[in-house]
């Protein structure tokens, strides 16, 4: 699904990622953990193709294609989805309009027929129910005046609609209370299957109680310094990031 080889990236000339290696197979969920400033969000944004993140060396292969050569919209159409840490408010563009434009551009890219208004509405109502989103939110401007939890649910709604092959959740748990966290996790788990992969970027272990990962990687100073199974997250929670960083520098 996704292979990251020795990926280096910088922002405003400052090196943030310093040699990431990662392999994600179909159906796997990988958690990326790490202290603030370790490069977690940079990795997520580089994979989604955000401007002003400069890849200085390394390669990323997604489903046998060079991901780094693709424009952001092409990555999305090929099946990469980034759930934003800070979803953007867009006054004047209705949520429904965005969702329809998104699903149809993905469908068109895949050579499928675009959805007519009726089919789309039926589908979107079904997906909105999955994240317990009230229908009025569909008709409002994108994320405008949404609470933190509503914004994150809106991200998962978009993800559920687009059915990506690789979902990248960038600190989706930040700013969520426990009820919203459960709803979001339920939405994510419903999408989980043997052909879909996920990268769950998080600072805390809490989210991983609900979205159980196959692998956990710890990122520090732009490198993965330790990988393990879900028990690594628990160990981190107990001992803190200081422990593992000390451990890494001692090694």
């Amino acid at each position: 699904m996704l292979t990251v080889n020795n990926l280096h990236a910088s922002v405003d000339g400052k090196a943030i990622l310093r040699g990431i290696n990662l392999k994600v197979n179909p159906g796997e969920i990988h958690a990326i953990m790490g202290p603030n400033g370790s490069g977690k969000s940079t990795l997520a944004n580089v994979l989604a193709g955000r401007d002003n993140y400069e890849v200085t060396s390394g390669e990323v292969v997604f489903q046998d294609q060079n991901l780094l050569e693709m424009e952001p919209e092409i990555r999305a159409r090929e099946g990469v989805f980034l759930a934003f840490q800070y979803p953007v408010e867009i006054p004047g563009v209705s949520n429904l309009y965005l969702l329809k434009a998104a699903i149809n551009s993905v469908k068109k890219h895949r050579g499928e027929e675009e959805l007519d208004a009726m089919t789309f509405l039926k589908l979107i109502k079904e997906k909105a129910a999955l994240v317990e989103m009230k229908q009025e939110f569909l008709y409002r401007s994108v994320n405008e005046g949404f609470s933190g939890g509503e914004k994150k649910r809106n991200e998962i709604l978009q993800m559920a609609l687009l059915e990506p092959h690789l979902s990248i959740l960038d600190e989706t748990d930040s700013g969520l209370d426990i009820d919203a966290l459960k709803i979001v996790a339920h939405g994510v788990n419903t999408l989980r299957n043997e052909s879909r992969s996920m990268l769950v970027v998080t600072h805390y272990q809490r989210l991983l109680d609900y979205i159980v990962p196959d692998y956990v990687h710890v990122l520090a100073h732009g490198k993965i310094i330790r990988s393990g199974d879900k028990s690594l997250a628990l160990e981190l929670e107990a001992k803190g990031y200081g422990w593992i960083e000390d451990h890494a520098s001692a090694a």
Binding site: A48, G49, E71, E73, F84, I90, L98, A101
Partner: peptide
Amino acid sequence: SMFYLRSRGIDP
């Protein structure tokens, strides 16, 4: 906002 829309597959 541009990146957000493009990251949902929407043409620039």
